[in-house]
């Protein structure tokens, strides 16, 4: 079953084109990655998915609904972890979870969620005193506290140390195992390779490939490189072809 359909999405900021032509479909229960260099339009794309921004062109259907028209409804069934979104410095972990769970008709049990995220020991810690990884985990918890059917996670692990990144990956798998469809935006290829069932590779606001990580690697042929990595494959797709060095 398809839960998200994007066709020919376009979005400009003034005369700056952020998204030129993006189309993809996300199936229920998968972890769908959107990868590409900084500034390639990933965040803008997911912001359009959730009605935070209005597209200039193209169509979007999320759970069969147009995010522009059914914002209220989609906010109940789509949880989003925004890139660079924080909380008030002096808000405690449990207070944030308790507050955000009160926004939904059928929320998750926030105490259980807090335990799943490994935040129980920090329940009385204020946001400003959390480590980067703990802030991210709280942010993911807030995206999940409404029991969404789709979770959109934008640059979840940027700024985390290697251990925290691996912990966060496990978290994303756990989320999927709860039956939630995950859209994961990242520019880390190891992350995309380990986590994602399928990937959309974007370059300058356009999708240049959609496939499984294994297929993306398999179809890459690079002179002089015997076993290309996903990073090689994606770089080959996102960099304009160069004359052989």
């Amino acid at each position: 079953m398809t839960v998200i359909e994007v066709s020919n999405l376009q979005k400009r900021y003034g005369d700056q084109v952020a998204v030129r032509d993006v189309s993809f479909e996300v199936r229920a229960g998968e972890i769908f990655g959107i990868v590409g260099p900084n500034g390639s339009g990933k965040t803008t794309t997911v912001e359009c998915l959730t009605g935070l921004r209005r597209p200039d062109g193209g169509t979007i259907r999320v759970l069969g609904l147009d995010p522009d028209l059914a914002r209220a409804e989609l906010r109940r069934s789509v949880g989003i972890q925004l890139q660079e979104s924080q909380l008030p410095d002096r808000l405690k972990v449990w207070e944030a979870l308790d507050l955000y769970s009160s926004f939904y008709a059928d929320p998750a049990d926030w105490r259980a969620l807090m335990a799943d995220m490994g935040l129980t020991a920090k329940r009385n810690t204020v946001f400003a005193k959390l480590s980067g990884g703990q802030k991210q985990r709280l942010s993911v918890a807030l995206a999940l506290v409404g029991n969404p059917r789709i979770a959109v996670l934008d640059e979840l692990t940027t700024g985390l140390d290697p251990q925290a990144r691996r912990d966060t990956w496990q978290l994303v798998r756990d989320v999927r195992d709860r039956g939630v469809t995950v859209v994961l935006v990242t520019h880390f290829m190891d992350e995309a390779e380990r986590l994602c069932d399928r990937l959309a590779v974007v370059r300058a606001g356009e999708v240049v490939a959609i496939d499984t990580p294994a297929n993306l690697i398999a179809r890459t042929e690079l002179p002089g490189i015997e076993r290309p990595s996903l990073e090689d494959a994606v770089l080959a797709l996102t960099n304009p072809p160069r004359a052989a060095a």
Partner: peptide, 17 residues
């Protein structure tokens, strides 16, 4: 000003509230 700068208002606009 702090709520806006930290993206709290933006985060809220992703929820039903």
């Amino acid at each position: 000003a702090a709520d806006r700068e930290k993206g709290v208002l933006r985060r809220l606009s992703t929820t039903p509230v």
